[in-house]
Amino acid sequence: MQKILVVEDDQVLNAGLCYNLREGGYEPVSAYNLEQAQSAFSAMEFALILLDVNFPEGDGFQFAGYVRERSRTPIFFLTACDMDADIMKGFDAGADDYMTKPFNVKILMQRIRAVLRRYQEQPREGQNGERYFCGNLMIDFEGYVVKKKGTPLTLTPTEFKLLFKLCRNPRIVLTRRVLLEEIWDAKENFVDEHALTVQMSRLKSKISDDEYSYIKTVYGMGYQWIGEKHE
């Protein structure tokens, strides 16, 4: 049974979330502050972290950064902060999804399942240990490893799937709709409108440099893998 860490200081809401997660077939673990969250994260392995933003002793963005430095564990923000800037900050902190309060429990559970599915459905190409070299990047599709100039990069599952999709379709403009439907289950509407823009921007910032840009933004259409060419 997959463990989900529920980091929420409202005890009633925390209990309600845990109840619904148990009903959905998951094993929830409650944390009511960031210290408890960090302790639980250090002691156990989680399939996903459901995380509030506002805590008396700090904010969830900081904890998300702490997690992302150490793990690819999916992070799902669930918070009352509904300003665009807050949502963007959540994705910049390493979130895989972001939902604002109040929320529909059924939709929340569907989106949690969608995040976990993206994490579990790792790319299958390169099963014979195939590695893809481009510019100063080395991408091991089987090992889920990306190195830049020999240094490993920390990518979220969503960022890796975007990278996989792009570099497996070189010189083809992948529209926003295609990427949303294939990676964020947009046909079921379980996607935040900012997700693709923010995740793509973060991916580009991690892999590109002054020498190689790799990904070209085709304004009004989508994105294109240009490899070693300059945008």
Rank of each mutant, 00 (worst) to 15 (best):
S71A: 15
E130P: 00
H194P: 01
E69H: 09
A40Q: 14
N14Q: 12
R113V: 03
I183L: 15
E130W: 10
E45G: 06
D59Y: 02
M99I: 12
S42C: 08
D10W: 11
K3C: 03
Q127L: 11
Y219S: 12
P170L: 05
A64T: 01
E130S: 12
L5C: 07
K187C: 09
A40K: 10
Q199R: 08
V105N: 12
G65F: 05
Y219V: 13
S39C: 04
G25Y: 03
V67I: 15
Y223Q: 02
E8S: 11
G222W: 03
G129D: 15
S30D: 14
E211P: 00
C167E: 12
I172S: 09
T100P: 01
G25N: 06
D84N: 13
C134K: 07
L34W: 02
K229G: 06
V198S: 12
Y212W: 05
L50D: 04
N104R: 11
Y212S: 04
F91D: 04
F55Q: 06
G150R: 05
I215Y: 02
F91V: 07
N54F: 02
Q110I: 00
F91N: 04
S39D: 14
L155W: 03
R22Y: 00
R70E: 09
G58I: 08
I4W: 00
M88Y: 05
I87T: 11
G24H: 06
A95S: 03
Y144G: 05
K3T: 09
Y32Q: 03
F63Y: 11
D52S: 12
Y119E: 14
G129C: 13
V218M: 14
E159K: 01
R176C: 11
D140H: 09
F91E: 06
Q120L: 10
N20D: 13
G150S: 10
R118T: 06
L108N: 00
E121H: 14
G143P: 00
L5I: 10
S205D: 14
L153H: 01
G60M: 05
G94F: 08
F41N: 01
G227C: 04
Y66M: 08
V191A: 14
E181S: 11
S201D: 13
L5P: 02
Y26M: 06
I107S: 12
V145C: 07
P152T: 09
A93I: 05
I107Y: 08
F46P: 00
Y66E: 09
